[in-house]
Design a protein around this nucleic acid. Structure first.
Lengths: 418, 418
DNA sequence: TGAGTTAGTTTATGACCTGAACTATATAGC
DNA sequence: GCTATATAGTTCAGGTCATAAACTAACTCA
């Protein structure tokens, strides 16, 4: 029925290669090269040929497919005052876009993102989702997304796919949130596809920390590099591993549970049932409680903590220092296990950076001298909407990796919009 | 000069696909299917066609290549009392083999392993390598390997590749041991290739824990499954991550340093410069010291510890219990990060299993209830020679993945043995 | 001995990339 | 304005490879 979803590659190891695979590979190669050229403007077929190593003949044929599929378009190039026939520019079709969405503990958000990963439109609605039913939240999200879709339609932009980030354990295959302790969800199957019924590539469900990590790959120009650990400090503490520019999600897609690294054998009980997890020390609630600010309403907690820190309240400072010390231990442990040497701080860790980073770095130096250089501790650049943006980027990536889903009629793909 | 080495795939992301790639893919598919059939005997072309999904015509052509390359051979099949023309059996050529080698702290070892991963011949020599120069150890290893090669030649077996495991951080590209603290090596470039000058696939350098982890993938029939963490308890403590049946080695190949997970903020200083690492609690030396057996000569330490445990000496029992408790914390942390739920204990952890596993499991339950089931804590089956065997298996795997290196003349491949 | 059955090969076809020849379109110099 | 030159893109012959169908080979059963 639906085409194979991006990100759910379940090759059963016995798929023979056929000549058509070569086409798919090269289609992806050509499209990726066009996308990569985006910052410096459109690229010609001839440039594409040298960039990819394919012949001009092949490139012409591949580009024809991409053009008819509507993934790229031709644009006139301004004269360059060079000799010879001028080339025709090729760029990602600005009439196509993807939607990145996020459900978090205290807000829902959606973004319209172009195929060159530009944020075209962002909408966000504060909403205390703790304890709300998945259906209620999804209904509100659908409403939010519809405003985005209406605006996209006005601009003549077709939405071809989407991604939805949720702070919990995800099963992509069934579009199910296995557990999201901070939302109070477990085993909720979301109708993510229904949010974007017209999107040919469907809607992919992602873990919030993973999505936020992906947002870092492209948003900062090369600072983080292709290999890093992203720690997302929200109510829970999660990590996203980026290895060679792609997410590492482990066998079942659940890798990255850094919040439950055991750091204090005799510590506090954790929501996971364990004892002394990082989350009991460096989670948002844990810090607020240690700072003596636990009873405040949700939205104002972080700002109150910030002002307490600014005015030098000792409990607040101590709470953040303690969190930083243990976060440092967790990060060097993680870096050693994964073999990376760059960490990116997101969520409240980025917000608290001024007070957090010095003791964090000191702790890392103490427990693993030289492992992570001072200039390899980075702050998230995408900000709070990072997860939604990362989702969108992941959909774009899956398009670049497999453009054939938008080009070929595909098997059993008739009657798409009945 | 030499052909691209297996395991050093550095695709610069811009290699266009050509029709020839299809051939390579299918060659690998066919060979893998022949290898997979090995336990149940030779496989015919017709069976191969249905197993792979390729047509009989393609299989015939692929098999011809594999036959002329000497990777597989035809064997007569005993009559099956079925109707129709009998097929011709195909099996991995028993006239080809690989060599797995290991340099460890107190021994060197080498094994001759068939293409079906059978151990044909094992040699081992005890040797205190602490502080020995790399050149000295390599010279002794070469001598050991030569006895193996002589025997292989006698049996008419050609060695086509090898792997060498070293307990340290490896740079495969340059065949260099970056650091091996327990050997006292750093920055030693080994002439691994020189150990097997006639082997067309060369010699791959591997980390000891990674190699031992690989040994577990195939040696036990499916017990460990395709996803697990292997913890190797040697003088150092290392881990190998197997994800979907393959090693996860991280961006630079250094992933798995579980021995330096930080578990005790105020613990003992570690050889890595840090404080409170797992190795300072559960490393061989740490346990022996805590058991009050630190001054004994190297070879007898573990046996003395075992007898101390058997006679119930409280210091010994306490030392192992303490190591188990912290190992449990490290393992649940690792399992959470990597998203796996199976652990395999190797090295001295397997040797001490009787005393170690109960407190280990208790600790895991305490810190992550339900994460790792009791029947998902397994003991290494390959034993002490595991790393050498795992190396050999990895070479076999790289042959299965890329048989073209043994088949095609290859570019610039003239004058191989001048 | 011949019908039925399974194994493996041959042959025609189509998809695809390549390389070379070719067409198209610009600039530079006269 | 005309011609040489340079670059962009297309067309076409040729080679590799998998596929499907026809064909040959070898064995069993009756």
């Amino acid at each position: 029925m639906s085409e194979p979803q991006p990100g759910s590659e379940t090759r059963s190891q016995s798929i023979p290669g056929s000549v058509g695979d070569v086409r798919r590979t090269n289609l992806a190669l050509a499209l990726t090269s066009i996308a990569r050229a985006a910052p410096s403007g459109p690229i010609t077929r001839a440039q594409l040929a040298t960039a990819t190593g394919l012949t001009k003949a092949s490139i012409s044929s591949l580009v024809l497919d991409l053009l008819t599929g509507g993934v790229v378009r031709e644009v006139a190039l301004e004269p360059r005052a060079e000799r010879g026939r001028p080339g025709v520019g090729l760029e990602m079709n600005p009439g196509r876009a993807v939607v990145g969405m996020e459900i978090n503990v205290d807000y829902i958000a959606a973004e319209l993102v172009s195929l060159t990963r530009e944020r075209l439109l962002c909408v966000k609605r504060f909403r205390d989702n703790r304890g709300s039913s998945a259906a209620d939240v999804m209904a509100d999200l659908a409403e939010l997304v519809n405003t985005l879709l209406a605006e996209a339609a006005d601009r003549g932009i077709a939405v071809i796919g989407g991604g939805l980030a949720v702070p919990g354990l995800i099963d992509q295959a069934t579009s199910t949130v296995l557990t999201a302790p901070n939302l109070g969800w477990s085993g909720e199957t979301l109708d993510a596809r229904g949010l974007l019924p017209e999107a040919r590539l469907g809607v992919t469900l992602l873990n919030e920390a993973n999505a936020a990590a992906l947002a870092e790959v492209r948003s900062r120009t090369g600072t983080a590099g292709p290999d890093f650990v992203f720690v997302s400090g929200e109510v829970g503490v999660g990590a996203g591993f980026v290895i060679a520019g792609s997410l590492f999600v482990g066998p079942a897609g659940h890798a990255g549970e850094i919040g439950h690294l055991v750091l204090e054998p005799e510590g506090l009980p954790c929501s996971c049932g364990g004892i002394g997890c990082l989350e009991t020390i460096a989670g948002q609630d844990a810090i607020l409680r240690a700072a003596g600010l636990a009873d405040d309403p949700l939205e104002t907690d972080m700002s109150r903590l910030l002002s307490a820190l600014s005015s030098g309240e000792s409990m607040a400072v101590a709470a953040v220092q303690r969190a930083a010390t243990f976060l440092g231990m967790a990060l060097v442990s993680t870096a050693r296990l994964m073999g990376v040497s760059t960490v990116v701080l997101g969520g409240h860790f980025a917000v608290l950076a001024h007070w957090l980073v010095p003791p964090l770095f000191e702790s890392m130096q103490r427990h693993a001298p030289g492992l992570i250089r001072a200039d390899r501790v980075l702050l998230s650049s995408a900000g709070e909407g990072g997860a939604a943006f990362g989702c969108a980027g992941s959909v774009v990536q899956s398009l670049l990796d497999a453009p054939q889903f938008l080009i070929r009629p595909g098997p059993a793909d008739v009657a798409e919009h009945p």
